[in-house]
Design a protein around this nucleic acid. Sequence first.
DNA 1: CTGAAAGCGCTTACAG
DNA 2: CTGAAAGCGCTTACAG
Lengths: 361, 361
Amino acid sequence: MTPTPPHPDDDHCPASPAEHPLPDGGAVRLTSKDIGRLVGVSQATVSNAINRPHLVAPATLAAIERVMADHGYSVNSSARALKSGIGKALGVVVLDVANPFWGEVVKGIETVTAPGRIPLIIGSSNEDAETESAIFQSFESQGVRGILVAPTPSNLPLLRRFRAKGIQVVLLDSEDPQGEFPSISLDHAAGAELAAAYLRDGGHREVALVNGSPDISWCASRSRGFHAGFAGVADARIHEISRTAMTVEEGRQSVDVLLELLKQHPPITAVFCTNDMLALGVLKGLHERGIAVPGDLSVVGYDDAVFAELLSPGLTTVHQNATAIGRAAALLMTLDAAVPQAPEPLQPPHLVVRGSARSLR
Amino acid sequence: MTPTPPHPDDDHCPASPAEHPLPDGGAVRLTSKDIGRLVGVSQATVSNAINRPHLVAPATLAAIERVMADHGYSVNSSARALKSGIGKALGVVVLDVANPFWGEVVKGIETVTAPGRIPLIIGSSNEDAETESAIFQSFESQGVRGILVAPTPSNLPLLRRFRAKGIQVVLLDSEDPQGEFPSISLDHAAGAELAAAYLRDGGHREVALVNGSPDISWCASRSRGFHAGFAGVADARIHEISRTAMTVEEGRQSVDVLLELLKQHPPITAVFCTNDMLALGVLKGLHERGIAVPGDLSVVGYDDAVFAELLSPGLTTVHQNATAIGRAAALLMTLDAAVPQAPEPLQPPHLVVRGSARSLR
DNA sequence: CTGAAAGCGCTTACAG
DNA sequence: CTGAAAGCGCTTACAG
C-alpha cells in the first residue's frame, strides 16, 4: 500500500508530460537576471541577496527569496566558479567504491561536507596510477576546491602542480614522507606489525602475505610492518603474493598460489591479507576447496570491515576506524570561508582477535 | 608508536613548512588564451584543437598539444559548461555510500562513465527526503548532465522540473508507475515474494519484517511483495518493523523489538530483512543475545551482498546483481554526443538458499 | 585552416 | 541599500 500519487503540478514549467524529454529549445532555466526582472531589482541585488544578504533591505530580500523559491531558482555553479575562481566541490579518489572500507571513509567525509552543501566528486582508481591521474585531471578541470586521496607515489608531482594552482590536497590514509601535504596518516606499518606479532607468537613461521600493488604506498607500508614483526625470527619465511586489485575476486584467485605454498615443505600455516576484501576472497576460495580455517590455515585481515565479526569463522583483523579517517581528512580542508576546523585525534590501529587464526603451540 | 599527528598547524592556510600552499597571487592556471599565445595561434584555434581536432592543421594541432602537455593545461569545465549550457558530470544519489550494495551499484555506473572521463558527483540521502532534495539542488547547481537516483516519491516533482530544464533523469533501482522517466526497474516485489514463499513453505506463520522507511518506494515494494507471498495463508501474521536507516546499527537495534515478538504467543519464528545490512545487524544482535540462527529464529536478507555467503550461518538472501543495475542505468543516459547506448537486460531476482533460515516441518 | 568577436551567468568593486 | 559595468575562460557561428 501507500500509493502516494505524485503531484501533478507542473506550474511554470512548460514541460508537458510524456513529451520530448530534452527539447533543445524547451530548457528553461532562470538566471539571476530573470529573478531580478521578476522582482524588479537588478541582477547585482539578487546576487547580494544570495551571497551577502545583510547588504540587502529586508523587504527586498524577502521578495527575492520568494521569487527564487517559487521558480525553483538555483545558482549556476559554473558561472559562479568561473567568476570567483574556484568551485566548492571536493574530489575524492578511492581505491574502489565497492570496497566497504572506502565506503565508510566516504561516509566520514560526508559527515563534514554535508551532502547537498559541498558536492563530492568521487572516482575509483582501481589501483591504477593512470586512472588515478586521469581522475585528478578531471577534478582540476571541474574546478574542485580540494582533493582527498591516498595517491600513488608516481602521481605526487601532479598533486604538487595542483597545489601550486591553489587546489588543496589532503592525503588520505597515506604516508607523506616529506610532510609536504597535510595528511591524516595511519600507521599501517604498526597495524601490520601487530598482525605479524600475533602470528609469530602463535608459532607461525612459514607465512604468506597477500597484498595489493606495492605501488600503493600503504600496501608497501603494511608489507614493511609485517616483515618487521618477523624480524629476528631466524626460521621465519614470508611469501609475498601481490595482486593487481584488492578485491574479493582477487583474493579468491590468490588461493591457487596459496595451494602451492601449502604443498611445499614446510607448508605455510598462515596468511595475512592486507585488507578484508582480500581476506574475504581467500576465505571463500579456501572454503570452496575444503581447506579448514583456522585448522589447516590461519587467516588474518586488515580493516575490520563491518562483516568481519560475523564471518565463519570470525575474521581476526586489524581494526581502524574508516569513518573517523574520512572525517579527519575532510576537516583538514579549508571548506567554507576560511574557517579552520579542528582536526580530530585518530585512534591507532589495534588487532581484533577472532577465530580465523589459531596458535600452533 | 603511531604518532599520527594531525598537523599542529590549525590554520591550514600557510600550512606547509616555509611555504604558502594557497597564495592568492601565486595560483598559476593557464587559459586557452595563454596556450594560444605560447603557440602563436588564437584562442579559437586552441579550442578547436581540443574539441574538433579535424578542423585544425596537423602541424598546428601537434604544436598546441605539445604546449598543453608541457604546461599541464586542462580546460576549465566551468567556463565550458557555462558556454555550452550543460556540463558532463553525472549526479548519483545513493541511500548510503557505506552500504556495499550501493558501492557495487556505483561501481557498475563507473564501468560506463570511466573515472576521469565523466565525473560522478555522489551523495548519500540516508533515506531522508530533505537531504535528497538538497542533493538534487546541488546537482542542478553544478550543472550535471543527468541524475541517477532511486528517489523518494515526494521529490518526484523536483525531478520533473529538472527534466524540463534539460537534465536527464534515470530512475535507479526504482519503480516508476507512470513510466514517465527512463528507469531500470527491478522487481522488488517479486524478490520479496520469493523470500516469503520460502518461509511460508517452510511452515513459518508468525514472521517479522524489518524494513527501511515506507517512503522509499522499493522498501514499500518489498513489503508489498512479502505480504503477497503470504496472501491466502489464513493463520499467517506479519509484524512489520520500520527503521529510519537500513544500516547494520539499525538492524542490531531492531533486535530489541524482535525479542518482544519472540516472547509473544505464538512467537515469531522468522525475520525477513529488506537488505543485507539490516540482516547483518540483526544477526549481530541475535548473536550477542545468544539467540541461535536458524535454531531459534530464521533470518532472510535481500541483496546478496559480497559477504553473505561467508557469514555464520550463511545468509539466505535474495540475489540481485548490483553492478549490472548501475551499469544498465548509466547506459540509459545519453552521455557523449547523442550516442544512444544499448540497454542491457537485467536478471530477475532469485533466492539464494544458505543456512540462516530453516524449515519448521 | 585560422581569427575576431560575442556572450554564457555570475560576482565584484565602484558609484550613487 | 541598489545598480551599471566589467570580466572570469570558454565555445561558436561567422568571416576571411
